[in-house]
Design a protein around this nucleic acid. Structure first.
Lengths: 201, 201, 201, 201
DNA sequence: CATGAATGAGATTTCATTCAT
DNA sequence: GATGAATGAAATCTCATTCAT
């Protein structure tokens, strides 16, 4: 393995260990020592690959965000029908919190940093912008094909993402508050209905 | 001032200083010393009134949650029309994050604790349950008056709250991502539309 | 009740509460607050009656020491035979640790202070001197009556007290290390034997 | 120096500094800071080598106890005569408090912990059990050789140790209360006499 | 590259003592 | 006499970061 790959491998190893730490001990309850132990490396080497803890955390954020993104893109390309695509998008987003509750929480942990660390805010903002973009392009496609009525694609995307985030949150707080699958079906229907051309009264 | 009031006053003073600390330094970046300085009291007295930092934080959560609740209830009672009431509910919720961005963020900071501290999770869950309940009762009223179509009131409430939470979040991450007022109008319309009786095709 | 009595009563109340605290929480693990709560008085009043915590502790030492002393004197006066008297003395001393294990431990807790607080050392020294004196006077009486052989009364007293203290200690460390009553009988016999006139070989 | 030795050396350094602190400031009147200063290391490193203060204290107890033990064993093996051996045992024990007054006091300081910390009690109990064992084996040897009369070896050992502990204590409280050497000779004689076969009257 | 011993700042918490009421 | 709110010093312990090896 080349030197470059060794470095990449080590960094990955450490980032994964950090994610593990966050999910296991909580965002603010783990030490570099914990990361080192789980990664199976020495404490010193972490500071060789990462400037400091903040730097490491930013790498974690990047990793978590792109993992979720990749998840979505992979599945969405399986259909050509805009409505189907949207339904898949919503379904995947709604499933993230259930399939990888920890990942969603790690992600959420970073939200609280936006006020103190502009860099974190920027990454999250970029991430959400991408999401809206992805969603908006599908809506535009549907509008072009006259399958959807005329709406502001980005605004409607923000609406869609709001719903999935909001539902995920409420479920995290109390997962017996409602039947997740039923609610998922209902909100998907509402979202799609809102896009369909209005029948003349 | 009577002794009883002194205690209440002091507790309030400390809780307010803590909120100030969270908004200023971040949830995990302030010390009891900071609270003491901002509250204008000694470090020791905080532990006289609060068992420990956790206990203090729970008081802060309680305070923030009930402040938001009160805000909503006060304004909602100004109308008798279910649709109007819902519109007010949505408007207020959507305004919380803008009028008191700090409050919303402090509130959000607690979300990340739900995995580590069951007590925090329970308080937040209770808080959201109340919100849904408030919302659901208005929907039920609208259904009874045949103004709304038949829906599951609690599920639809979860949906409404999802939207306002999700929009608020995205706005926090990047408040130039969309025009807040326009989006607010649009999602309100979508939410209300989803409740209105369907016109026969 | 006169003012003087009120003061004495309060002091007694506080000293007793302190003894309770030591036995319950350990010599160094209780606060003035604990004393106040158990005594049923306010924290402030303790400092009215006692200069500070050290002063209070000295009162406790006095109390504990004289309680044990009184216990011994009361029972020893029941006989006139020097040998009987000594046997009673030994029996009572050996019983202190079993009847009031806590008292013996509180007493012991002060031993560790002798290096830091001369005043404590003096009180304990005085206490032990009294013990030896008490014992020595009985030995002298026995010698005068030709019941005991000629020994140094104070030295032999030190020996007697050594035995009862040492046995008590070992029993405290592990009360299943030996059968206490059997050992008590044996050492008593040895002590008395050591005092009896030697049979000519 | 190898890394393994560095750790051992550092631990030893810290334990010795702690003993120094106890003798100088008293068992409960020294801080980790004090230990650090005397050991010439940083505060942090103590917690690197010892889990916490309790852990450090247990190491100190271990150290003190085994030091005393070693002292005894070294000297006792110089004779083969059971009576001589016992006399040496008694002499050494009685000398510990004089030669290393501090050591004896540190040891004593732990006694007061037996009620609060079972682990401490167990170590002390084990320590005393060893002492009795050592002593008992010599007595058994003397009995086998018909030099001593028939006694319960462990019980008599408890008696012997009682005497030396008790004498040591009284001397600590007031070292002018009696002439130590004279008393030492007297009690040794009494102890040995108690073991010799009784002359028929 | 890699280790882990070492540092020292800083956090939470406890508590004897004071003092206004 | 009596209260208990308030203080502030001090203690233990954690941990990111550095650096000699």
């Amino acid at each position: 393995m080349s030197k470059l790959n060794v470095a990449a491998e080590r960094k990955d190893q450490i980032v994964r260990a950090t994610v593990e730490c966050i999910t296991q001990f909580g965002y603010h309850n783990f030490s570099m020592q914990d990361v080192a132990k789980i990664a199976g490396v020495s404490k010193g080497i972490i500071h060789y690959y990462f400037l400091n803890k903040d730097d490491l955390m930013l790498s974690v954020l990047d990793r978590v965000a792109s993992d979720i993104e990749q998840l979505i893109h992979t599945d969405m390309d399986s259909s050509n029908d805009p409505q189907k695509k949207l339904e898949i998008f919503i379904a995947i987003c709604l499933n993230v919190v259930r399939r990888t509750k920890e990942y969603y929480q790690v992600n959420m942990d970073f939200w609280t940093q936006i006020n103190q660390k502009e860099e974190v805010r920027l990454i999250i903002a970029k991430h959400y912008a991408k999401f809206r973009e992805t969603c908006a392009r599908v809506i535009e496609e549907g509008m072009k094909k006259n399958l959807f009525r005329k709406v502001d694609p980005l605004a409607y995307s923000a609406f869609i993402i709001s719903v999935v985030d909001g539902i995920s949150l409420q479920w995290l707080f109390e997962n017996s508050a409602f039947d997740y699958d039923t609610l998922a079906r209902q909100v998907t229907e509402l979202i799609i209905e809102g896009l369909l051309p209005r029948s003349k009264g």
